[in-house]
Simulated scan of single mutants.
Amino acid sequence: MELLASALRAVRAHPLFSALVIGLLALGIGANTAIFGVVHAVLLRPLPYPESGDLVMARKPPRDGNANVPGGGDLMPDTEFLGWLEAVPKSFRALAAYRNSTATLQRGDGAVRVPAAAVTADFFPCSA
């Protein structure tokens, strides 16, 4: 109790300094909370798919020994994916493919290049 009374006396003795310290603490706590909210939303929250831990990405071993795409390995050609699609291994529930690209988005004042992807029909399965 004596410690609290001493702290209150110090706050009353130096109100400007106390307001500055309290404001900086509030700013720090608020910034920390905002950053954690972003990190949680982007990195920590699980993907919005049932059993999202079971998702895998299949790639071919790199031809030149280097991982030339993010995640390592070479992309699978369309013909090879179609072969896999015809004989889907029983360990896979579904099989889908995508290809990264860019597209031109036409706007009133011009056009901009945006990232895009071409996906197969099973990439976003319907739950209906």
Rank of each mutant, 00 (worst) to 15 (best):
E2A: 10
E2T: 08
L3Q: 11
L4F: 14
A5N: 10
S6T: 14
S6W: 09
A7I: 14
L8P: 03
L8N: 13
A10M: 14
A10G: 10
A10C: 12
V11C: 01
R12V: 05
A13W: 08
A13S: 15
H14W: 10
F17Q: 10
F17E: 12
F17G: 13
S18E: 01
S18I: 03
A19P: 05
V21F: 11
I22N: 00
I22P: 01
G23P: 02
L25P: 00
L25R: 04
L25S: 08
L27Q: 09
L27P: 03
G28Q: 05
G28V: 02
I29S: 06
I29L: 07
T33Y: 11
I35H: 12
G37W: 02
H40T: 06
A41D: 15
L43R: 05
L43T: 02
L44K: 07
P46C: 06
P46L: 06
P48M: 00
E51H: 13
G53L: 04
D54E: 14
D54I: 01
V56F: 06
V56R: 06
M57D: 09
A58C: 07
R59Y: 09
K60Y: 11
K60P: 01
P62H: 06
D64N: 15
G65I: 07
N66V: 13
A67I: 04
A67P: 01
N68K: 10
G72P: 09
G73P: 07
G73D: 08
M76L: 09
T79C: 01
E80P: 04
E80F: 07
F81D: 08
L82C: 13
G83W: 11
G83P: 08
L85Y: 09
L85C: 03
A87T: 10
S91G: 05
F92M: 12
R93I: 10
L95E: 04
A96K: 05
A96P: 05
A97S: 15
A97R: 12
Y98W: 09
N100F: 13
S101W: 08
T102Q: 14
T102L: 06
A103S: 12
T104C: 04
Q106L: 14
R107M: 11
R107L: 15
G108W: 03
G110Y: 07
G110H: 06
A111Y: 00
V112E: 05
V114F: 00
V114N: 01
A117M: 04
T120M: 00
A121Y: 02
A121P: 01
A121G: 04
D122E: 07
F123S: 01
F124N: 00
C126V: 03
S127W: 00
